[in-house]
Design a protein around this nucleic acid. Structure first.
Lengths: 170, 170
DNA sequence: TCCTTAAGTACATAGCATGAACCATTATTG
DNA sequence: CAATAATGGTTCATGCTATGTACTTAAGGA
């Protein structure tokens, strides 16, 4: 089917005026489908990780925030995960129940609770980041070496353009 | 920061052996971040559409299935959306309540209900697909004309590679 | 006719996420 | 310094996403 369309396009290409519109139509449809499929694949990946590590997706995402920082606050997590702070309470509760995280009172400010990984949490977090790193390395190795740089810069273009369209839409 | 790393990489590049590993590390991290951001942007887009059209995301997705086919069955929808059939019942109920869809009994098989768009549903569906088509066209137009083909083929490579990694993971 | 399979629904359960109301505690300001 | 405002967190009500099991009805084959 795609081949047929491509063929039609090809025969029309160097002849007429509105063939440009046809090409644009075809390309934007293609773009839409590809993005759709890629996003779908990523969704499956996160769902897979959640099952593999037996931790809900939101909690996994939270666990991965402790990359650099030793301690995080509920507010900080709320901002990084881009969710309401009431949501963070739930997520932290889940992680505390699993003994992956523990919260201590901030000695300076009694309102604040400092959330930190337990050693069990550090282990899980490490495993998780190792796994996803490995996954993306495998992905990279699927490309031909010359393609790698190109794919990355294409994604950079795509991301920037998506950002631009988003802003232009307000 | 990225510039510094890139610089380090550059000075190391044509000299030593394990600089390849460093490059791979850098690139896979980059890849991970880019994919993350792109997926995030898509999530925001669907959430935006849901608010704009005042219809839950799952129902929107369902509405978009009536592209070619006149009627769909619950089972068919379940397969296309890749959700449990009990989920489909809920989704259809929502759409029926909004008078966007109606179900009639299959004259041939009393077990089956044929789901079809109402005229109101057709209108919404059309609006929706027009909007997303426009969006992707805008996106395409953000690229330089020469880039368009390249970005698309890069996404094709990416999609194929993700598929490959997924299969290789079982 | 009996049994199996298929289509669809109901219900219990779980996760994701928000927003409003609320309780402490800290900061500000008159 | 005391009243008030702002901040950090929790609780609760609500709604969407999604699954799986059990159930009903219908179709179709042995």
């Amino acid at each position: 089917m795609a081949a047929i369309i491509a063929n039609i396009l090809h025969t029309m290409n160097n002849r007429e005026n509105d063939s440009i519109d046809v090409l644009l139509d075809y390309q934007s449809q293609k773009l839409q489908d590809l993005i759709e499929e890629i996003v779908q694949c990523c969704k499956e990946r996160t769902s897979f990780l959640s099952k593999k590590f037996d931790i809900p997706e939101a909690e996994l995402r939270c666990l991965m925030l402790f990359g650099e920082e030793r301690y995080l606050t509920a507010k900080g997590i709320s901002q990084k995960l881009d969710v309401a702070k009431s949501r963070v309470t739930k997520i932290i509760n889940g992680l505390v129940k699993k003994r992956l995280v523990e919260s201590i009172d901030d000695p300076k400010d009694a309102r604040i609770k400092l959330i930190g990984l337990t050693s069990k949490g550090q282990k899980k977090s490490r495993e998780l980041s190792d796994f996803t790193k490995d996954l993306h390395q495998k992905l990279l190795l699927e490309f031909e070496p010359e393609q790698r740089k190109m794919v990355i810069s294409c994604l950079e273009i795509l991301r920037a353009s998506m950002e631009a369209v988003k802003n232009q839409m307000v």
